[in-house]
Simulated scan of single mutants.
Amino acid sequence: MSVPSNASGPLPWPQWAYVPGETSANADYETLDLAKALVPSAFRGYVPARHPALRYALALNDRGYFWEAQEVLEAVWAAAPQGGRERILLRACIHIANANLRLRMQRPRSAVRLFGDALGELRTLNSRKAAAAGDGFVETLPVPALIALLQAKLGRPELSKADWIGLGAIVRS
């Protein structure tokens, strides 16, 4: 997945990955604000799978910027249509990014709980009526594959830092 572009070119990567309690500096808010500025106040009908802030958030997660990915995903979630399927999927992605961060912080029990929360969100999503196929985020992410991946992780006796989940590789572009 390539880094999405904004009006003036590609979005830069944060200068460091923020890990609460471990990183001496605060998060690179200046860089994250560039991506958040791309998020409209409200998406109409659905969240486009190719929206640059969404793609950037997924790429952040896949590059190990888990805290940063969560921040940008939360901005996209806040603009997603109320009651929409994308909001549910975005909540699951936020839980996954947060779980990945917990794994990095060597807090596997917390990560297991968050992966379980994400799995619950995805099951809720599957119980909701699907809209006509389109180019929304929900239509491009193979939810059954993500559910299977989460179930496999949760089926392990113990999780380690290496058990984090990438999201960008799962999305069909």
Rank of each mutant, 00 (worst) to 15 (best):
M1C: 02
V3I: 15
S5H: 09
N6T: 10
A7C: 05
A7K: 12
A7D: 10
W13P: 01
W13C: 00
P14M: 14
W16H: 15
Y18W: 13
V19F: 10
T23C: 12
A27G: 02
A27F: 07
Y29V: 09
T31L: 05
D33K: 14
D33C: 08
L34M: 13
L34R: 15
L34V: 07
A35H: 03
L38D: 03
P40Y: 06
R44P: 00
V47E: 06
V47G: 09
H51A: 09
P52L: 12
L54H: 03
N61L: 01
D62Q: 03
D62S: 08
G64R: 04
Y65A: 01
Y65M: 06
Q70S: 11
Q70E: 15
E71T: 13
E71Q: 15
E74A: 02
E74H: 06
E74L: 04
A75H: 14
W77F: 15
A79V: 05
A80I: 01
R87Y: 07
I88E: 04
A92G: 07
I96N: 05
I96S: 05
A97N: 06
A99F: 12
N100A: 11
L103V: 07
L103W: 09
R104E: 15
Q106D: 13
Q106F: 08
S110W: 08
S110F: 08
V112R: 15
R113V: 12
R113D: 08
R113G: 00
F115K: 04
D117S: 14
D117Q: 14
L119H: 10
L119D: 02
T124I: 11
T124Q: 14
T124S: 14
N126A: 10
S127H: 12
R128D: 00
R128N: 03
R128E: 15
K129I: 10
A130W: 05
A132R: 14
A132S: 10
A132Q: 13
A133S: 14
G134P: 04
D135R: 10
G136C: 14
G136V: 04
V138W: 04
P142C: 10
P142E: 09
V143P: 00
P144G: 05
L146P: 06
I147H: 04
L149S: 13
K153A: 13
G155F: 07
G155K: 09
P157K: 13
E158N: 02
L159W: 13
S160T: 15
D163I: 04
G168T: 08
A169L: 07
I170D: 00
R172P: 00
R172F: 02
R172Q: 14
S173E: 12
